[in-house]
Amino acid sequence: MKLSPGQASAFVFLVVYCGAVLILIYRAKRGMKLPEIYKIPGLDAIDEAVGRCTEMGTSVHFSPGIAGLDDAQTLAGLAILGYVARRCARYDTDIVCTIRTIIVYPLAEETVKQAFIQEGKADRFKPEMVRFISDDQFAYASGVTDIMYREKPGASVLIGGFWAESLLIAEVGSIVGAIQIAGTARLQQIPFFVAACDYALIGEEIYAASAYLTREPTTMGTLVAEDWGKMLAELVIIVGCILQSLGITLLKDLLSK
């Protein structure tokens, strides 16, 4: 069995990291003392944004991005969609979730529907709350901007994988005066969101959102594992820099296996 270069070390790291995540979930369940999470203003602003829409009598727009289910950003977006939809259901505010990738549509619809059921407002759920726009990137962007101009949502939450359409949607949201919370792990799009939105979630913050919003010990445990992983990565980078500067290629060879 032959692995391509770097795959063996990646697999070992994946197993160790997943092991650490599972151990910390187990320990968190058994009452491990969890650290405080630093404040993420973008996530704190979600309640404020939904409240604003309730007062104004407008809807909340949500987009889980244009990536598919094979992208963790979409899954993170759907988790936040559940939270936003529950808040909307609680305050009798409409939500408009726009979808580009068709396989995401049934999941988004189920997420919103379940949120309304859990809040005891099943009768308020409407099929048009989750809208499939188009599978084409720019047709999707046009559709979303049309909804923004026509329906003028009081808030727009964009969390997931975004590409070139990110600025188009965010700028139109800004033009119609919506309070905007956006987040992505796509490096090229982060600056656009920072420039055009009121609050921006950068990279890993979108994955931490679920734990941050729910404060559930099991999900919080995974955040501790993420920090351990980051410390390990920093250690590997520092040791790698020193060894490479000294002409020792041991770590490089090990990671290339």
Binding site: L22, A72, L75, A79, G203, E204, K230
Partner: peptide, 24 residues
Amino acid sequence: IQIGATLGAIATALRILVGIERSH
């Protein structure tokens, strides 16, 4: 940002695989 996002993505995927994250 990329290192943090990658670790976050793995943790999110794991949370979904083992059923901790189940809003969908």
